[in-house]
Simulated assay, not measured.
Amino acid sequence: MGKFTYSELLLIKKAIKGDTKALGKILRKNHEYIYKMAYIYIGNKEDALDIMQEATIQSMSSIHTLKEPSYFLTWFCTIMARQASKVIKQKIQIRELQNSPEFEEEADLEKNENQAIDVLESVMNLEDKYRLILQLFYYQGFSVKEISELLTMPEGTVKTNLKRGREALRKVLGEDYYV
């Protein structure tokens, strides 16, 4: 994905100039890819559809900021990633509110909450190829083989990107997050 035909590039250019019908057409043409990415970001159908909808709304008001039409999908997926991050943060907050704080000291809860947010933010700031693989492996529980099949890439590439993604997180977060 990412290579557009001449007619698709014309649609994107029209969308940048404010043509919402052109934006709708290019989104429909790439719906399958966009849905797959949304699902990878968030891990379930309902939330994936929600972040796609929110990203579509946001893209309508900010499409004029897209400088290079050939980067449309990257730009759109970045908007979805931000939406996914918000949804994940909300889910973390809801889970923490649902957990009984009587069994843990308040300082420990705050530390765990901050660590979870730090890790999530760090993962969201990684390069796409590392972020997607880490999310699929750790957050969605996919095996290396399943990730390889889902992303249509060799298992060796998945393993390499998984290792490099972990190393990038380790550099950002430090060793104490990997106890």
Rank of each mutant, 00 (worst) to 15 (best):
F103T: 04
Y33E: 07
Y177V: 11
F103A: 05
S122Y: 06
I34T: 05
K129L: 03
T65A: 12
V172D: 01
D47T: 04
T5N: 12
E46Y: 12
Q58N: 13
L150C: 07
K145L: 14
F76Q: 03
G156E: 07
K171Q: 11
L120W: 01
V158S: 01
I94P: 01
K29W: 07
S122Q: 02
S59N: 09
K17W: 15
I117W: 07
Y139S: 11
S100W: 08
I79N: 09
F72V: 05
E155H: 06
Y41S: 00
D118I: 06
S122R: 03
K171S: 15
S143W: 04
K145Q: 11
P101Y: 03
A168F: 06
D50M: 07
I63H: 10
R95H: 11
E104D: 06
K17F: 13
G43P: 05
Y33A: 05
K89Q: 10
R95Q: 12
I40D: 00
K145W: 12
V144W: 09
Y178G: 02
I57K: 07
D128W: 07
K17L: 13
G156Y: 08
K171R: 11
K14H: 15
Y178H: 07
S70I: 13
M37V: 08
M124R: 02
Y39N: 02
L23H: 01
D118S: 12
M124P: 00
K91G: 05
N44R: 08
L23M: 11
Y6L: 13
L173H: 03
L169V: 08
L132P: 00
S70W: 14
F72W: 09
L132F: 13
K21N: 09
T78N: 14
M52I: 10
G165W: 01
Q90W: 14
K17E: 11
N161Q: 13
F142A: 02
T78S: 15
L66P: 01
A15Y: 05
I63V: 13
S7M: 15
D108M: 07
T56A: 15
I42Y: 08
G2N: 10
R164E: 08
A15E: 02
